[in-house]
Design a binder for these strands. Structure first.
Lengths: 336, 336
DNA sequence: ATCATTAAGGCAAACGTTTGACTGGAATTT
DNA sequence: AAATTCCAGTCAAACGTTTGCCTTAATGAT
C-alpha cells in the first residue's frame, strides 16, 4: 500500500511554525534565522522529506514534463531521436511523457489531447506518414503549448521545426551517382503528401537538370505501391538502368534483393543509394550506400529548441535544418 | 504564451452554481436536474473544457503515470520491451514517464527519486548494473510504490519480477552446438558488469561441463573490446574452432563477416549462434541462428503485472519467468 | 393540515505548495 | 526618547478538483 509521504505541513506542525516558514527555509527564500532554518532542514532530512511536484505544478502551472509523440519505437531512426531528446531533457531536469501513434491519425489526435490534459510544458512530435491533415496539432498551438515538429514541415502550421535538408540530401546522392558515371537513374518515390519524400523527389529532379540530364517520368516508381517489385523489374526490362536512388533504405534493400536475383553486378552495372542509414545497411551484402540522417542530432536540437521556447518564453517559431551526409559503401562506385 | 484553460470554477461562475455542482454534473455523480446537467455539459462543450489531471491527482493521490527506467533505447531489445509496455499502458489509460540510466548506478538512483517525486503510480525498471547495492530500488519499495523489475533478479529485493532465463538460454544454445557435433566452442562474452551477460557466460560453462568438455579461458573473447575482430582472427588461427556462441547478435554478425572473409563454410565448418534475435538476424546471409528473447512479451507482462498490483492493491510480489527459444536458421547445423 | 421523504444543490475542507501582504518586536539611527 | 529600519515569521489566498455533510424546497403519504 502506498504510504503517505511527509509534507511541508507535517514538518511545520512538528516544529510549531507555519508551512510558509518551512517552504521558505527549504527553498532558501525569504528571511529566516539560521537556527530555525537548520532545525527545519534537519527535520526534513530526518523524515526524508521530498517535495511534491504535483502540488508544485498546481501553483506554478509548470510540470517539468515534456510530451513526446512518435509513430513507433521499433525503427532505429526514432530510437535515436528519442535518445537525442532524452540527453537534453535529462540534463535540464525535465521528464518525458511518451505516446506512440502507430502513425495513425486517430491515435495521434488522442495523444495530443492526453498530453495537453497532462499539462505538459511542451510537446515534441513526429507526425506519422498517414496523416495528411494536421489539425490536431493546431489545437496544441491554439492552447499556447510550445510545439516542435520533427522531420516534416507543414506549411499551414505556424510552429517550430527541426528538419533535415531532404532536397539537399537527395541532390547530393544523385549528384554522386552522376559523378560516378550513371546516367539512367531511377527514383523510388515516397508518398507525395509528405514533405520529406516530396523534397527528396525535387532534389532528384534538380540534380538531373543541373547536369543536363532530362527528367523522365517513366523512371519514377512509387515505393509504397503493392506492385513495387514488379514495377522495378518492368523498368529494368524496359530501360537501360544504371542506378537507383530510393526514398528509404527498406526500398533499397528490396531493390538489392531484386538485382541479386537478376544476377546484376552491384555496383559495376547498377548502383543503389538508400535513405536513412538504418543499421541494417551495414550488414547486408553488399553494404548499402545511403544518405545518413543525423537522427540523434535531430532529437537533441528539437529538445534544445523546445526548452529554449519554454524557458525563455519565445513566441516566434524557429526552424532548423540539419545536414545529411552521404555514406559511400558497397552499392556505389567510386566517383572520379 | 500558455493560455489559462477554462476550469470547473469558471464554468460554475458563469452559471451561478458551485464548482461541486459542475463537478457532479460532469462526472454524472450525485443528483442533479436534467436541465442543469444539460446546461453545464453544453457550456463545458462550448468552451472546450478539459479536466485538469494535476488537480485530480492532488485529491485522488493517483497520477495515472507509470515510471519506466531502462538502460538505453538504441538496442532493439529495449525498444521492444518499451513497445510491449506501451501496448498495455495505453489501453489502460496510463502514461509512461521514461528515464534512461545508461546502465549507470548513479543515474538509476536519480531516476528512482525523480519518479517517486513525480508520484507515479508504479515503476517498471530494468536494472543496468550488476552492483549488489540496490538501495535505490528498496527506497521505492519502502515508500510502497509498486515496482516490477525486468530481466534481472535480485535476491535481496522483495518485489515482483519478469525475467528470462539467461543461464538457460545460453545453456540450451551451447547444448545444441554440442549436439550438432561441435567441440571447440568459442564464447563471445559481454561486459562483466551486466548480469545477463554473466549468466550467459555461466550457462556456456555449465553446458561444457555437463557434456564433459573442458572450459578453456583461451576460447573466451570480450565482445566489447577494440581489438575484437583481430581477437577472433587470432583465435581462429590458433585453435581448431568449430563454433561460436555470442553474447549478442551484433557480435555474431561481425563473426559471420569475418568467417565469410576467410571463406569459411557456415555452418558446415563453423557454426554461429547469437543472442536476442535482432531483426537484422533474418536479413543477413546466411540468416543467423540465435536465442530469441520474448522482449515484447516481457514488457507486456511486466506492465500487466504492475497494473494489476496497482489496481487491485495486491501486496505480495509475483515473479514470472519467460522462456527463451532457440531459433535455428542458417548458421547452425541440424542436430542429430 | 401535518409529517416524512427525497431531490437538487450549496458549503467547506482537503490535497501540498507558494507567495504577497502583513505584524510584532528588536536593533539602529537621529 | 522618538522615529526608522529591518528581521523573522504569520496569515491567507491561490492553483482545480472532489466529496461528506448540510440546507432548502418540493413532493408524497397519512
Amino acid at each position: 500500500m502506498k504510504k503517505k509521504k511527509i509534507s511541508i505541513t507535517d514538518l511545520a506542525k512538528e516544529l510549531n511554525v507555519t508551512p510558509s516558514t518551512v517552504s521558505r527555509a527549504l527553498n532558501g527564500l525569504g528571511s529566516i534565522s539560521t537556527k530555525r532554518k537548520e532545525q527545519i532542514v534537519n527535520l526534513a532530512q530526518k523524515y526524508g522529506y521530498r517535495p511534491n511536484h504535483i502540488a508544485k505544478s498546481m501553483v506554478s502551472n509548470k510540470t517539468f514534463n515534456i510530451g513526446l509523440i512518435l509513430p513507433e519505437f521499433t525503427h532505429n531512426y526514432f530510437n535515436k531521436i528519442l535518445a537525442g531528446i532524452e540527453s537534453i531533457t535529462y540534463q535540464k531536469g525535465y521528464q518525458l511523457l511518451i505516446c506512440t501513434s502507430d502513425a495513425l491519425k486517430e491515435k495521434e489526435e488522442k495523444s495530443c489531447l492526453t498530453l495537453l490534459d497532462a499539462r505538459v510544458d511542451g510537446i515534441l512530435a513526429a507526425a506519422g506518414n498517414s496523416s495528411d491533415n494536421l489539425d490536431h496539432f493546431s489545437k496544441i498551438i491554439d492552447y499556447g503549448t510550445p510545439l516542435v515538429l520533427l522531420d516534416r514541415i507543414c506549411e499551414d502550421l505556424n510552429t517550430s521545426y527541426v528538419i533535415t535538408d531532404d532536397f539537399d540530401g537527395a541532390f547530393e546522392a544523385v549528384q554522386y551517382l552522376i559523378d560516378s558515371g550513371c546516367r539512367n537513374i531511377v527514383h523510388i518515390k515516397g508518398p507525395d503528401y509528405i514533405s520529406t519524400s516530396f523534397n527528396r523527389f525535387l532534389g532528384y529532379q534538380e540534380a538531373l537538370r543541373k547536369n543536363g540530364l532530362t527528367y523522365r517520368e517513366e523512371l519514377v516508381i512509387a515505393g509504397d505501391s503493392e506492385s513495387f517489385v514488379d514495377d522495378v523489374n518492368n523498368t529494368l526490362n524496359t530501360f537501360p538502368i544504371d542506378a537507383f536512388f530510393a526514398f528509404s533504405d527498406y526500398n533499397a534493400f528490396d531493390i538489392v534483393k531484386v538485382l541479386k536475383q537478376r544476377h546484376c553486378k552491384i555496383p559495376e552495372e547498377i548502383s543503389v543509394i538508400g535513405y536513412a542509414d538504418e543499421p541494417l545497411a551495414q550488414y547486408i551484402s553488399p553494404q548499402l550506400s545511403t544518405v545518413k540522417q543525423p537522427a540523434y542530432e535531430i532529437g537533441k536540437r528539437a529538445a534544445e529548441i523546445l526548452l529554449k521556447i519554454i524557458e525563455e518564453n519565445i513566441e516566434l517559431p524557429m526552424t532548423e535544418q540539419l545536414k545529411t551526409s552521404l555514406v559511400h559503401r558497397e552499392t556505389t562506385k567510386n566517383s572520379h
